[in-house]
Structure formats: C-alpha cells, structure tokens
C-alpha cells in the first residue's frame, strides 16, 4: 500500500493528494454501505427467523389444510395464554387454556375479547410461541391475528383460531405455549400495512 510517489524525498502532502480523494471516496462508500446494512438487517432478520422459526413467530397468513396424516399415537399439549399490552382495560381470554392434540388433526380454539371502554377501538393481537421452534410446526388456517379487530364501545366478540400441528414436530417438544399479546392500534395506521404485507 506504500504510495510509489513518495520515494526520493519528495514531499508527501503534494504527491499524496490525488490518492487521498480516491481512498476517502472508497471509505465513504463503506460508511454509507454500512448505514444501509443496518437497515438491511431488518428484513434479513425477518427472513432468517421465518426460515428457522427461531423467534416463535407463527405464520401470519392462512395456511391450507390438505389431507395431512393424523398421528393418533402422539399427544401434544398446546397451552394458550393472553395478555394485553400496557394497562389496556380490555378483557381478553382464551375459552380453553389447555388442549391435548394429535399432530395432523384440525382444532379450533376460541378467544373472547371485550372492549370495556366507552370508545371505539382497533385491536391487534400478536402471536408468539415458546419454545420458538414449535412455531414452525404450528399451522393456523384461520386466525383473528391476521387482521386488526375493530370494536365499538362495549362490544364483545368471540374470535376463532383454527390450527393443526405438523406431524413433523420434533419429538422432544411435548408441550408448547401460544401467547397472544393484544395491542391498541387505534389511530396508528402504519401498523396495519406492515402486518398486511407479509
């Protein structure tokens, strides 16, 4: 990397100038590239988690159920828990908290949501599975979490979620938990578009 011009006692500042601009240019490209890379980490992260399922994120568009073989010999426990983000005074509960299922078979779990406020709201439920790998094998053909839920003041709804567990679920997973966190997205529109895109 030693610049050739500097031999024979020439003064480096003058001879080095054109070099400097080129090198600075390259380094600035690196800087902008890394700034872009910081943002590129966002989609990369999502893609990586989708493929590996390591983040406990379930499918966010409906899966299809076409004659999956039912494994009657195996029983898997699916637990449902719900929570509301911050101090939202809504009631949000699973109707059944715990189900014993056979991999491959279709099931339905219902969730009750009541807007106990005196204003109209829009809710968004975000699912998460623990242990994370199980998320890859939980297939939801219908879920209230695929859309936002508009609720007028005082409205109570029963929201269905239909799912089956993939028979390929690793043997060491005998129990997994599906959690729904409910967010108040009234007045924030960006949320819906990002959710819908996937």
């Amino acid at each position: 990397m030693q610049p050739e011009e500097q031999s024979k006692g020439q003064r480096p500042p003058q001879s080095a100038k054109p070099n400097n601009a080129k090198l600075v240019g390259k380094l600035v490209v690196v800087v902008f590239g890394m700034f872009g890379f910081g943002f590129a980490l966002v989609p990369l992260y999502d893609v990586f988690c989708d493929i590996t399922g390591i983040n406990g994120k379930t499918n966010d568009t409906a899966a299809t159920y076409t004659n999956v073989e039912i494994d009657q010999s195996r029983e898997v426990v699916v637990e449902f828990i719900t929570r509301t983000n911050k101090q939202i005074p809504w009631e949000f509960e699973p109707v059944i908290k715990r189900m014993v299922v056979h991999p491959g078979e279709m099931y339905q779990a219902d969730f009750v949501l009541r807007n106990s406020e005196s204003r109209d709201v829009i809710a968004q439920a975000v699912p998460s599975v623990s242990p994370g790998q199980a998320a890859l094998y939980l297939n939801k053909t219908e879920c209230f979490c695929f859309e936002q839920q508009p609720l007028v003041a005082g409205q109570r709804v029963v929201m269905p979620m239909r799912f089956y567990v993939d028979p390929d679920l690793p043997k060491d997973i005998e129990v997994f938990t599906l959690n729904y966190t409910l967010y108040d997205v009234t007045g924030t529109t960006t949320g819906s578009t990002q959710m819908g895109q996937k």
Binding site: Q124, T190, G191
Partner: peptide, 23 residues
C-alpha cells in the same frame, strides 16, 4: 409511526438488540 421495534405493527423489540449489539 414506524414499527421497527414495535410488535403491534409487525416489528420486533428483540431485533433492536441484534442491531445494537452488532454495533
């Protein structure tokens, strides 16, 4: 109003930690 780190909008707070610690 973006939701990079906001689960309600499809983001993920854990992703913040990945980006932060990558730095």
């Amino acid at each position: 109003g973006t939701s990079f780190f906001d689960a309600a909008g499809g983001g993920d707070p854990v992703m913040f930690q990945h980006i932060f610690w990558f730095f």
